[in-house]
Design a protein around this nucleic acid. Structure first.
Lengths: 253, 253
DNA sequence: GAGTTTTTTTGATCTGGCTCAATAAAACCA
DNA sequence: TGGTTTTATTGAGCCAGATCAAAAAAACTC
C-alpha cells in the first residue's frame, strides 16, 4: 500500500497556476483519512481516474455549492480560502465559518442530503472534490470510510461547541485575538506558515462572523498593532507577540 | 423483525417512579435509529439483556459524565432534562446546551475518545445508556450503526451552525424568544406537549447559554408576559401567541 | 495609469444590556 | 412547619460597542 493519496500522486500537475498562495500537502489535508482509504480502495478495484476524486481551481468570488443544493460531494481546500454563509431574512448574510487550506467543506450536508450553507472562494483557490454518491457500490471499504467521516464530524461538533462557548461572552478584543489565534493554529496544524499569513476575508466578514461591526474589528486590529502585538499590512498579518495575543484572548489582563 | 426497540420492550417496567415529568416514547427518541438496529442485532445474535442498553434514573444535580472522562456510552434522555457545560478559566461554567426528553447526550465524545463537557440533570430524570465499546465485536451490523451515528452527528453540526449564525447578532428579546421556540419545537418533534412546558433550567443558566445576564432574561420574560405573548408561573411557561414570539425571534417589529 | 468602486480607518454620538444592589418569592430541609 | 438558602424580580447608573458620517487607502477596470 503506497503512502500518498491519489489526489497528490495523480493530480498535482493540474495545480492552479493563477493561485499564488501556498498549497497544503496531501498528508496535511483534512480529507486525508478518507482520501487514503480511497487510495487503497483504488488499488484494490481500479477506479477510473478523476471520477471519485477531482482536483479543480476556483476563482475568487465563485461558489462551489449553495445552500439547499443537493449534497453530492465533500471538498477539501487545497489552496486559498473560502467563507461559508447563510442568508438572513433581512437580505444580509451571516458568515458561519472560514475554511483554510487543508480544511474540509460540505460534510454537514451528508446527513441532511442538502448543503446547509453557501461556500464562496475568498481568493483564487483550488479544491479536491470527493464525489460521495459513487461510493455506495459494493467492494468498497465502507466501514473504514464511515469511521473517517464520523471522526471528521465529531471534530466539527467539538469545534462548534468551543466556538459557541467562547464567543458569546467575550469582549471585542478577546474575539479578535481569538480569531487571529484560530487562523494561526489552523495553518500550523496543516504545516503552513502560521505567524505571518493573509486574511482573505474583509473586516466586515470577520465582524459578521464574530458578531461585531466591521469598524470595531478595524479599531481592535489597529490597537493591537499600536501595542506591538501584531504587524498589519493590508490583509497581511504578522503575529509578533503570540503570547500577548493568547493572554488577551484568554481575558487575562 | 419486531417493531419496538429493546429499551421499550424490556426496560419500561424499570421506569423511574420519582420522576413526574412525561416520558418520551421510544419511537420518538433520538437514539431510535441506533436503538432499532441493535434491536435487530439482538435477535440475530442474542445479546444478554441490559449489557448494551441500560435504563436508569438520574437524580437532580447528578452528573452522568464529566468533561475529560473517557468516552464509553451514548445516552438518550428518556424523561427530565440535562444541561451540558464546560468550566472556564475564571472558575465559572459555560453552558453549551440543554438536552430534553428524547434527545441524545455524549455523541461528541465519540471522535475524541473523551467527553468534551459535563452533563448534569436539571431535575429528576431517566436515561437510556448505550455502551458503545461492546459494539466493536464481530457479527454486528457495524455499517448500519455507523450510518445512524453519522446522521446524528450531522444533525448536531447543522444545529450548532444555526445556533452560531443566529445567536451572535441578536438582541436579548430575539434570543429569549428564539430560546422559547427552540424548546417548544424540540418538544413537539418528540411528540411532547409543546405550548406549555417546564423550563428545568434557572434564569442564569439560560442567560449563560444565551450570552445574557440572568437579570436580562428575567426582564425579557416579564415583558413578554406583560405583552400577553406568554404566561409565566415560576418555571412553567405557556406560549399564548406563538406567532408573535416567532415574529419577535425573527426580528420583525 | 487615470478614474471608478470598494474597503478601511478614524471620529462623534447614542443605546442595549451589564453590573451592583435591594427585595421578594420559591425551594429546600430538619 | 418555620427557618434557611437559593433563585427571581425590579431599579439605577454606566460603559462597550453599534451606528452614522466622512476621509483615506486599496483594489479593480478599461
Amino acid at each position: 500500500m503506497k503512502k500518498g493519496s491519489i489526489s497528490a500522486s495523480r493530480n498535482s500537475s493540474k495545480a492552479d497556476t493563477r493561485c499564488s498562495s501556498q498549497e497544503v500537502e496531501c498528508q496535511n489535508c483534512g480529507l486525508d483519512p478518507i482520501c487514503s482509504i480511497l487510495d487503497y480502495a483504488e488499488e484494490e478495484s481500479g477506479v477510473p481516474d478523476g471520477v471519485l476524486l477531482r482536483r479543480r481551481p476556483v476563482s475568487r468570488g465563485e461558489t462551489i455549492f449553495r445552500k439547499e443544493d443537493p449534497f453530492h460531494s465533500l471538498f477539501a481546500v487545497k489552496s486559498g480560502s473560502f467563507k461559508t454563509y447563510v442568508p438572513r431574512f433581512d437580505h444580509t448574510d451571516q458568515v458561519v465559518g472560514f475554511h483554510l487550506a487543508g480544511e474540509m467543506l460540505g460534510c454537514e450536508g451528508m446527513a441532511s442530503e442538502v448543503y446547509p450553507y453557501t461556500a464562496r472562494a475568498l481568493e483564487n483557490s483550488s479544491v479536491c472534490e470527493l464525489r460521495l454518491e459513487k461510493l455506495t457500490g459494493a467492494g468498497r471499504p465502507v466501514e473504514a470510510l464511515q469511521k473517517g467521516i464520523i471522526e471528521l464530524l465529531g471534530k466539527e461538533v467539538a469545534f462548534s461547541h468551543e466556538l459557541i462557548a467562547s464567543m458569546v461572552h467575550q469582549t471585542s478584543e478577546q474575539r479578535v485575538a481569538g480569531f487571529l489565534l484560530s487562523i494561526s493554529s489552523r495553518l500550523d496544524r496543516r504545516a503552513m506558515p502560521s505567524s505571518e499569513f493573509n486574511m482573505g476575508m474583509s473586516r466586515s466578514d470577520i465582524g459578521n462572523f464574530l458578531g461585531l461591526a466591521g469598524e470595531t474589528v478595524s479599531r481592535v486590529l489597529t490597537k493591537f498593532q499600536k501595542q506591538g502585538m501584531i504587524r498589519l499590512k493590508h490583509k497581511r498579518v504578522t503575529i509578533l507577540d503570540g503570547a500577548a495575543v493568547q493572554h488577551l484572548a484568554d481575558g487575562l489582563d
